[in-house]
Amino acid sequence: MIAVRDTRDRSAFVKLFDHFAPRLKGFVMRSGVSSHQAEEIVQDVMLTIWRRASTFDPHRAQVSAWIYQIARNRQIDIARKENRPMPEELKEEPGSASDASQILGVEQESVYLKQALAKLAPEQREMIEKAYLGELTHQEISAQTGLALGTVKSRIRLGLERLKHELKDLKP
């Protein structure tokens, strides 16, 4: 993704396509659209990824998290013919260097997160999936996934805390 962003590397984009396009198609089809419609949305999302690559920041997001948000927004924008309101982009301070430990932290968080999701009871996991596929209202999310969501999110925080400790241990 960094190669796509910084050098407009087409072969890197092809790799990204090979990994994400089938997953995006499966993801989009979960909401009941046909294979043909799903591919139209995948095409739109992949082109959006290419065009908005400059807004990807590995300090703040995993590639899959960034693509997830684009996919949900595009899917809804296309269905409802409107633009989802997005927060302002964070402006990078001029001259700020890339922080490897922060990028590693984001990577680590997602590992812990996957573990936490894998440990959930099947019906809890299904609820989480439904929530992030846009099948639950905010009231339903709060009533039905509250506990599971709390567990999963606490793993993210825990992950960062643990990483801080590990880094501290490494310091001389």
């Binding site: 092809v14 396509f17 396009a21 089938p22 997953r23 995006l24 198609k25 499966g26 993801f27 089809m29 979960r30 294979s35 799903a38 591919e39 995948v42 095409q43 992949m46 082109l47 703040r60 997001a61 995993q62 590639v63 899959s64 998290a65 960034w66 693509i67 997830y68 948000q69 996919a71 949900r72 984001v106 968080e109 997602s110 997160l113 996957k114 999701l117 989480i128 999936e129 992030y132 596929l133 999963v152 999110k153 993210i156």
Partner: peptide, 27 residues
């Protein structure tokens, strides 16, 4: 961002569905 990350994991782990050969060329 934490929610987007969970969404990203759901995206990663949803079953992949093969895409048509023409899609990549089109894009």
């Amino acid at each position: 961002e934490a929610h987007q990350m969970i969404g990203g994991v759901v995206l990663e782990e949803t079953g992949a569905v093969g895409v048509s050969a023409a899609l990549k060329d089109d894009i």
